[in-house]
Design a protein around this nucleic acid. Structure first.
Lengths: 228, 228
DNA sequence: GTCTATACGTCGATAGAC
DNA sequence: GTCTATCGACGTATAGAC
């Protein structure tokens, strides 16, 4: 019997892995992928640099895991927003999705930029494509019902959905790139502290969300009179 | 005086560099960035692999150069489309831009996918951000005049422009990812030959362009009656 | 062009679990 | 006693400063 991993050890390992992910998520939210160095993640998790590689074979894999974790939440939030307004009209539900997406992004600008546009490893790029399809499907489902019910004018729901995903993402990148909380170049990570909490999230990009909603409604083919 | 590069040598070097770029562009159009290995580029250019590094310090730099070259042409084409219809309405000019962009992309699907979405080096990602701003500015200029003249309803031209860039790009990725001419995994580059020329470009994504135009017009706030 | 700084990934050694 | 998890420094590559 060469060796058996005892449950206690396994639990400790799982906890350590969770700690690594947690540390990575924190750094990602504050400094983006630029701040997610293996050394920094390890330090924040309270372990040695080399120990991170016990859980992730490369930085790219860790980056992808962080991406999936956060964006998975966003897809869930957006799906929920689409489902909540099921009794309302399709246009309202699409608006709810866009508003949810944009509001959450603007509330955590550095994180949103990291997920949407920050230049990173190609592996993360590939994951972006996957999750954009997920967002598209959420839109497409709502738009399809809207077209079938006659509330929305005839259109290809998949194409409109794709276009709205791209529109929302691209429209946000502008406002997001302005006030990046952390990083972008060498940043004093020590002195930065935790001052950039969840405080004034409303100050970023004022008017962006309403403008995006107007764009969305028009793109769907809802007459301007219906939304004032 | 250790060494002086004679004009003849310089000319030969310039030609060789141009040959490298030309080879890279060809591979990019046929197999995307996946096919743009340094070895393949060198082989097509008729030089040794190591000689490529005489002109480009890294694969990333070569990738960026190729990107700038091709997308620069696209920006020019789109700008020209925007300028040509100066006597017409702003909506028509925006449509001309979108049609130009989409038609050209669908005519060279593998190339367009490589430029728009293929996971590549972060340096190319950074360049994508730069050029998306360029496309945005083309849209924004036309939209601004349309809003000022009253042809288009009130809106933030920059935001609408960004959204249209994202919408166009994302809407094309779907149709583009279907019929990828080359690569995606190991591809027989030798036997492929030059069969994938400029032949039947119309077969890809039928109906995509009109649908995108409709989306664009609606998003701009042009009533459906005006475009039938 | 050189030189410094930073960051990824690895390795031998140590400590501890089985 | 054997095997494994952890540490932290090192090798190497690269980017930026001067």
């Amino acid at each position: 019997m060469p060796y058996r991993r005892t449950p206690a050890v396994q639990a400790r390992l799982d906890a350590q892995r969770a700690g690594v992910v947690e540390a990575g998520l924190g750094l990602l939210a504050e400094y983006g992928y630029a701040g997610c160095t293996m050394a920094a993640v390890a330090a924040r998790a309270g372990i040695a640099t080399g120990s991170v590689y016990r859980h992730f074979p490369s930085k790219a894999e860790l980056s992808v895991e962080l991406f999936r974790t956060v964006v998975g939440r966003e897809v869930a939030a957006v799906s929920e927003a689409a489902a909540l307004g099921a009794h309302r009209g399709s246009a309202d539900r699409v608006v709810a999705v866009i508003e949810t997406f944009a509001t959450r992004a603007l509330k955590a600008p550095r994180l949103a930029y990291a997920l949407l546009a920050e230049p990173v490893d190609p592996a993360v790029d590939a994951e972006r494509l996957v999750f954009r399809r997920a967002f598209r499907d959420v839109f497409a489902a709502v738009i399809t019902t809207g077209v079938e019910s006659g509330e929305l004018p005839p259109q290809d729901p998949r194409l409109t959905a794709s276009a709205l995903v791209g529109a929302g993402a691209e429209a946000l990148i502008g406002p997001l790139t302005g006030p990046l909380t952390g990083s972008s170049a060498g940043e004093t990570r020590e002195t930065a502290g935790e001052t950039a909490g969840e405080a004034g999230g409303e100050s970023v990009g004022p008017g962006t969300v309403p403008a995006l909603v107007t764009f969305t409604l028009r793109a769907l083919g809802v007459p301007d009179a219906h939304h004032a």
